[in-house]
Computed example of a mutant assay.
Amino acid sequence: MDIPAPADPPERTRAARRAPGEVRDLLLDSARELFSAHGYANTSTKRIAEQAGVAEALLFRHFGSKAQLFREAVVEPLIEVLQGYAEEWLNVGPHEVEQPTHAFVKTFFDTLSDRRGFALALTAADNYTDDVVEDAGATLADVLRAIEGVVKQEEELNGYRGLNIPATTRVGVGSVLATAMFRSWIFGSDATDIADDRITNDLEQLLIHGVRHRAAPDRTA
């Protein structure tokens, strides 16, 4: 008598046997896609787990909460780019005056353009959950302080005058952030002749000349 081959195990059983690292990666990939497409409020943990092909309980085992999953899937990839920039330029040797601004604009703009859905999901989350906003805000504050260090270093090296370091840093970050996130709104969906390089070059020039040619503050006022 022929002995029938054993039936394939159910999908959930197979998923449960995956390595922990593989499960995390599947959940992060699923979360990034769904948060970017539908926003924080309209994406449930059940839907993320189903798309990843794992049990919802495993999502909470690995991340603890939807807010923590959002942080790791959406917030941290953007923060890491800015942190990496700050660490590089706080330890760089002699350089041309334009180089830090060029590196910042190019790196941040390209990252946001590639992950526009992440940034839009982050801003949309601002309307729905204090946990996400407070957590992302605290993380962003840390990295902004690191970038302030780069601005201060450039101020001292190049003799810039009249800078409010915190404000200058945030205006620079905000300018690149808004331009990358709302590119199609600002330039129009038909403005295909405006290349990214042209946009980043104009951003660089605005930031460089806005800092370099600022008048010294009036100390007598």
Score class of each variant (00 low, 15 high):
67 A>P: 00
49 A>Q: 05
82 L>E: 08
43 T>Y: 00
87 E>R: 14
48 I>K: 04
53 G>T: 05
49 A>I: 00
74 V>H: 06
56 E>I: 04
81 V>T: 15
39 G>P: 05
45 T>V: 08
58 L>T: 14
71 R>T: 02
77 P>L: 03
50 E>M: 06
83 Q>G: 09
79 I>C: 01
42 N>I: 10
59 L>E: 07
73 A>W: 01
64 G>Y: 12
70 F>E: 03
57 A>N: 10
80 E>W: 08
75 V>Q: 14
71 R>G: 06
37 A>T: 11
33 E>C: 05
86 A>Q: 04
81 V>M: 10
38 H>P: 08
57 A>W: 04
62 H>D: 07
53 G>F: 03
86 A>S: 11
38 H>E: 10
74 V>G: 01
47 R>A: 14
48 I>P: 05
84 G>F: 12
78 L>D: 13
62 H>C: 07
59 L>W: 02
73 A>G: 06
36 S>R: 04
61 R>H: 15
36 S>V: 09
83 Q>T: 12
40 Y>F: 15
61 R>V: 13
85 Y>S: 05
64 G>H: 12
49 A>C: 06
47 R>L: 10
61 R>N: 10
84 G>P: 06
49 A>D: 02
57 A>H: 03
46 K>F: 10
82 L>R: 13
51 Q>G: 00
46 K>W: 13
80 E>G: 13
42 N>D: 07
81 V>A: 05
48 I>F: 09
34 L>C: 11
40 Y>E: 05
51 Q>I: 03
82 L>Q: 10
79 I>T: 08
62 H>Y: 15
69 L>A: 08
70 F>P: 01
67 A>C: 06
59 L>P: 07
73 A>H: 02
83 Q>E: 14
72 E>Y: 04
57 A>R: 13
69 L>I: 06
41 A>F: 11
43 T>R: 01
66 K>A: 05
86 A>W: 04
56 E>Y: 01
82 L>N: 03
46 K>C: 13
56 E>W: 00
54 V>P: 02
84 G>E: 07
46 K>M: 14
50 E>Q: 11
63 F>L: 09
68 Q>K: 13
45 T>P: 11
63 F>Y: 15
77 P>T: 13
79 I>S: 08
73 A>S: 13
45 T>C: 15
44 S>I: 06
